[in-house]
Design a protein around this nucleic acid. Structure first.
Lengths: 329, 329
DNA sequence: ATGAAAGCGCTAACAG
DNA sequence: CTGTTAGCGCTTTCAT
């Protein structure tokens, strides 16, 4: 069932059929209809391998992800999917679990027209490999700076800064920071923002700690601090899960949020938003990140001049119910 | 940079190069080495569009998903990814959001060698379309029965039955069921199991209700029931999120779980497992579902005889800390 | 063990 | 506006 069958059936040549396939204007309306109905009858659809071969393009954009059980990733992926579809591209997701298999597959010029790396784990290796293979690609939420590679990141420093400013503005002076695993640049950046805000306000950090990006991590830290009777009046957490665990633990200790202690999270995880008190948090601009990423990649593919390598996006503080003015005791 | 360049560089013909590419034994070792090093030098990798075209296969399996912010999906996808890689196939994920765009793309015989539909939303349409296009495919966690289509589902009836039996075994007689949206067959099946278990024990259902698969859904139901002073001694929830919301609400009402009321969830959501009391829940056999699904698809692709259309897997009750013997008052 | 030739299904270049 | 010819990069007969 190929283009020749359609040609035969419609009484026209394969070239005309191809023209109809590609919406060429130079086909007489009558003939176009003939071709269309022949296709219909034959239940024909063009072979994409053949098209890719001759055109040198696949119409597919690959995206490598490490994890999807997370609102941030979820939102970015959905936006990318939509934007790509608008441009006539198809998104193929690949889980980077088995470093060898999956990504190497995607990393083939003829498999995809371009690649989006979202929070890549083995960032440097991937970047090098992709450059070597000469495949257009962009980085989203990456950790390091790379020359000549367009990337879109969130200004985590600013996020930490604003979260802390918010707390300071509420009169808090004893503010602690609980971050995630130190391998992440974002963790360090958020902390840097926190320290800067405090410094500007002439305050000393109350204390910092870290744990995994999990509810139980936050829970344990809070329990430990409570046990040691070392509690601030406000916590800035590097992640919503941590914040949620913290709130749970504090509640068990008879400490109310935000009445006794204020808590700020990070990421605006969907799920976490269903708990009371609704968490004040920092929302990352996923939609922007996704659409700018797609735009950059499209430019790269079309050979346009590339803009400055790194685009840094401002996150947004969402003030909700877990923060309040410090209690005057 | 194609096979001809390699041939020229190695001083052999394209056919020999092709043979090396395909591990044909009939190549003299010396020549194989020549070819290999030529490939290396040229940084050559074969064009997959050309291969697909001539072979009529792509080496790609498509999987259509609707949502990934969920442990059940996450686990199934990861297993499928691994199993497929073992077989030399690559998994391409596609979000079924924009029904038109995405899936229709995957639904092309020459794009993928086979398709896995995970909890498809527009199940019947997809099945029909895929049959029409004659693409090998399997259904995972589907809602309806289809002739001639291999599918793997979980025995939700059994899950509901066992969860309820567990509660009955703990001496509970006032047991309620809170299910999810009624469009899902799984919701009805879990309820059917619940009713059956009660019936066998000579008990009447205390009451049933339903809400979205969300924490807030469960929270609101519990608040409502508490307000109406209509509380059982045990809840069986059709979903962990609902169960979690329920526990939160009960706690706010001063009711302790499991001391005053026992709660059973469903799905063993990762995240939910981090809360105390750790939820007694029903775990779906994601690993089995994934690997059986892949096996079936492989058989289909290889033209083997298809086994009985539907494989029904038994879920597993995980007894943890949210259920206890009924209090004797 | 190796190679020449044909062809997978499609599009692009060039005629007419 | 339409068709003839060539070729994308690879694998597969079929000889040798």
């Amino acid at each position: 069932m190929n283009i020749h069958d359609v040609a035969k059936k419609s009484g026209l040549s394969v070239v005309t059929v191809s023209r109809v396939l590609n919406n060429s204007p130079s086909v007489r309306e009558g003939n176009r209809q003939k071709v269309l109905s022949a296709m219909e009858e034959l239940n024909y659809s063009p072979n994409s391998a053949a098209r890719s071969l001759v055109r040198g393009k696949t119409g597919v954009i690959g995206m490598s992800i490490t994890n999807f059980n997370d609102s941030f990733y979820d939102r970015v992926i959905r936006v990318v999917n939509r934007k790509l579809a608008e441009q006539g591209y198809f998104l193929a997701l690949s889980i980077a679990e088995n470093e060898e298999e999956g990504v190497n597959f995607l990393f083939q010029k003829d498999r995809v027209d371009g690649i989006i790396l979202l929070s890549p784990l083995e960032e440097k290796e991937y970047v090098e490999e992709l450059k070597r293979r000469n495949i257009p690609f962009v980085l989203l939420d990456n950790q390091f700076r790379h020359e000549d590679v367009p990337s879109v990141v969130v200004d985590n420093y600013l996020g930490g800064y604003e979260a802390t400013r918010h707390l300071i503005g509420l009169g808090h002076t004893k503010i602690a920071y609980i971050g995630g695993p130190s391998v992440f640049l974002s963790v360090a950046e958020r902390k840097r923002g926190y320290l800067q805000a405090l410094d500007e306000a002439g305050l000393a950090p109350f204390g910092t700690d870290s744990c995994g990006f999990t509810v139980s991590g936050g829970y344990e830290v809070a329990k430990r601090w409570a046990r040691e009777d070392k509690l601030p009046t406000a916590f800035f957490c590097g992640d919503d899960f941590i914040a949620l665990g913290l709130v749970q633990a504090l509640r068990e200790e008879g400490i109310r949020v935000p009445h006794d202690i204020s808590v700020v999270g990070f990421d605006d995880q969907q799920f976490v938003g269903e708990f009371y008190p609704r968490l004040t948090t920092v929302r990352q601009p996923e939609a922007q990140m996704g659409s700018i990423g797609v735009e950059l990649l499209m430019k790269l593919i079309n050979g346009e001049v590339l803009p400055p390598a790194e685009t840094k996006l401002a996150p947004q503080l969402l003030v909700r119910e877990s923060t309040a003015s410090v209690r005057l005791t």
